[in-house]
Amino acid sequence: MVELSELENDALIEIFNIGVGQAAASMSALVSEEVRMSVPSISFISRADAARLLGSRLAAEAEAPDRICGVSQHYEGAFDTDAILMFPEDKSLELVRLMVGETVSLQELTDMEQEAMCEIGNIILNACIGTLANVFEQELRGSLPEYHVGTSDEILGVSGSEPDSVVLMLHIDFALDKHQILGYVAFVLDISALHDLKEQINRYIARAMGQA
């Protein structure tokens, strides 16, 4: 669907790893404990394929399939996108409880825990987009995070984007103590946003090569 050259792919992975590295540092400071995060891979897929992928992957890991927790923020500027951090519902319970240091877990995230989840999403998404904006030397503005629970298709469609939108999907490895949690960040892009993003990547690479 969207082909990235090896160079473009590596550049994006590097940028996102800088972003989540900063997010991990913020989160470590917040909980006075080391939080590690990395982005091992990225891919461009259609929104429909992304929903299917998330549905099957997350369902394979989760005990109760289908239900996904998402935190979304809308960004606009150099390119427009809905950024969504997603975990299977039980993993998001685990993540929030690890972060908050709470051991008495209820069936679902409470209101306060949902808000904590929103903050975690806010930190990660702002860091990812912020790093992109920084290397692109462009400005992006964001909305406040929103919390969602539902199927992957519902979560990816929260913005009302068309099913033929493209999704830039990041795998995020999150580690705290001896716990390892795998999540996803999806950037939903329409065709013109995708075009803008590719153009920014190429400009960045040209600048980086020129400096080398």
Binding site: L30, M99, V100, N126, L140
Partner: peptide
Amino acid sequence: SRVDAAIDQALRHHFPSLLSQSLN
């Protein structure tokens, strides 16, 4: 603090921040 960092994010980078009671 994180409030300080959030103000910086808003003023310099145009990003909003949420600080939850559970974590802050």
